[in-house]
Amino acid sequence: METKKEFDAVKMMRNIRQKHHEEYTLNPELREKKLAAIRQKYSNRIKTSKIYGKNQ
């Protein structure tokens, strides 16, 4: 199916996913390092006092 869009979000996400897959295949520890950096950066936004998704 060919489209005439100037911007194709699905194609962009596939390219990003493929790039990350190749990076993590070559260096498996890289994924954990990146996730740890994200957790540290956003740690103040993470709510630990409530359990989300549960009916209370």
Rank of each mutant, 00 (worst) to 15 (best):
T3N: 13
T3R: 13
E6P: 02
E6A: 09
F7E: 10
D8F: 05
D8P: 01
D8T: 08
V10M: 13
V10Y: 11
M12N: 10
M12D: 11
M13D: 11
M13N: 08
M13K: 06
R14C: 07
R14S: 13
R14P: 03
R14M: 09
N15A: 08
I16G: 05
I16V: 15
I16K: 05
I16S: 05
R17T: 10
R17Q: 06
Q18E: 13
Q18Y: 09
K19H: 06
K19A: 09
H20C: 07
H21Q: 05
H21G: 00
H21W: 04
E22I: 05
E22Q: 15
E23G: 02
E23K: 04
E23F: 06
E23A: 10
Y24H: 02
Y24Q: 01
T25Y: 01
T25F: 01
L26A: 14
L26M: 07
L26D: 06
L26P: 02
N27A: 07
P28Y: 01
E29I: 07
E29T: 14
E29F: 03
E29D: 15
E29K: 04
L30P: 04
L30N: 12
L30T: 08
R31M: 13
R31V: 09
R31F: 12
K33G: 03
K34P: 03
A36N: 03
A36Y: 02
A37E: 15
A37T: 12
A37G: 14
I38P: 00
R39F: 03
R39W: 02
Q40A: 14
Q40T: 11
Q40G: 04
K41M: 08
K41F: 06
S43H: 09
N44E: 15
